[in-house]
Design a protein around this nucleic acid. Structure first.
Lengths: 232, 232
DNA sequence: CGCTCTATTGATAAACCTCAAATACAGTGG
DNA sequence: CCACTGTATTTGAGGTTTATCAATAGAGCG
């Protein structure tokens, strides 16, 4: 409560806080610790003991699964208002995920015991955490199915639409993905190579569906992309 | 409790019942309804409202994600003592998964409200359910990474090892997958075609790693398979 | 303005799918 | 017990998708 002034008002809408009053939100936030990470800094790494869970206040995190030989599967971006490492609260096993900031990021973090305590006081928290875990499960299952059954271009279309929905911002020309997103990032997200993503985006740019530059993508015609994603 | 005689003793080891005494287990089972499904019968289908959660007593269920054009991703097999549709208890949304029996299967099922009630009386149940959801999330994330980064034969090796661990039975020649498992099933599990699986198994059979017949696989040399899966 | 990182594009190769045909196998009913 | 029938499996040939490699161009930063 004491340092609630530090937190932007907008986080009253965070998934974490569904069904929790503003005052209680402030209390819960005050139980955590505020921490700012540099651009590109690692919050936690695959194989670490899961210790904290994080609420993102500003900027974004990139969650990845790492494989040998430097290959990487990009799981998702964690946007302001979203939490990650929710699972860390429920078990002590290693967490198989790596989190890196995309630009300098502000977070609030809670250790396991503190969060368990908070959940005890505010039971709605447990429900919200569970909801997050289930949402993640749904998301990864859909993507697993798509990865297994669809072609590369179709998957890139879906990826772009997903990221657009989660992190898009309206601008004049269309919907801008609001952070540095490279061809490599998109290929790690979809299980292809940066070359194929580049070719795909070039072809869509010719058709007027997107506009793109260095680590920057604007979706001009979401409808066309949706239709492409659904028909293959 | 009244009908606890119906249930085999072995289910005292079910994940669902971790930390729950035998008597309480019987009570919980008695709150559910016992139901036998025919071979190949569908328990629930993608898009259904999630209504029940199921404990498998005998035989196995096959959980799949369905895609248009008849393509299918095989999520996992649910063995005796395991539960499925755990998520159904926590939300009413459509469940994106299809469950079909592999041979005639005995189950116990609970509707949402009954299970919520049981959880209220036996809090350990909630923890066990959560554990199941988290395990499923871990599993699908690992497989997502593998699908995205590894070659077909490597994935088939991993699939065989996974299924072996979960459903294998020691026999003279090695470890037998203890139910009908076709080339098509394995290819749906790994995201390839039955032809490629067939070729792969043939080549392994020549090397003495497996023995296989119609819908039947014995892993003769698990070590060789592990090493193959890990080095690619 | 030079340096570095990202993106583009073409040529080639590898992995894997698709299609087709033959073969093996497990039940089933006579 | 055996022939029959419907699946499952095997295997080959050929095609498609996509990765890989290489070289060039472009963008941002100090």
């Amino acid at each position: 409560m004491s340092n609630s002034l530090f937190y932007p008002v907008t986080f009253h809408q965070a998934v974490l806080f569904t069904g929790i009053t503003g005052k209680d939100q402030a209390d819960i936030l005050a139980m955590g610790r505020r921490r700012v990470f540099n651009s590109g800094e690692t919050l936690f790494h695959q194989g670490d003991r899961a210790i904290f869970c994080y609420l993102v206040l500003k900027n974004r995190l990139k969650l990845s699964l790492l494989h040998e030989e430097g290959k990487e599967a990009l799981l998702r971006y964690i946007n302001p208002g979203e939490i990650t490492a929710a699972v860390a609260v429920f078990r002590e096993k290693n967490y198989p995920v790596t989190a890196v900031t995309v630009g300098p990021a502000e977070t609030v973090l809670w250790d396991r015991n503190t969060m368990l305590q908070a959940m005890h006081v505010y039971p709605a928290l447990s429900i919200n955490f569970l909801q997050v875990v289930i949402d993640r499960l749904d998301d990864i299952q859909s993507r697993y199915l798509e990865l297994q059954t669809e072609r590369v271009e179709q998957r890139v279309a879906r990826a772009l639409l997903r990221i657009m929905k989660q992190s898009g911002r309206r601008v004049d020309e269309g919907i801008l993905i609001d952070f540095r997103l490279s061809r490599k990032d998109l290929s790690d997200y979809t299980g292809t190579t940066l070359y194929t993503v580049s070719r795909t985006l070039s072809s869509w740019e010719k058709r007027g569906w997107v506009r793109s530059g260095r680590e920057r993508i604007i979706v001009v015609d979401p409808h066309a992309l949706v239709s492409f994603a659904e028909t293959g």
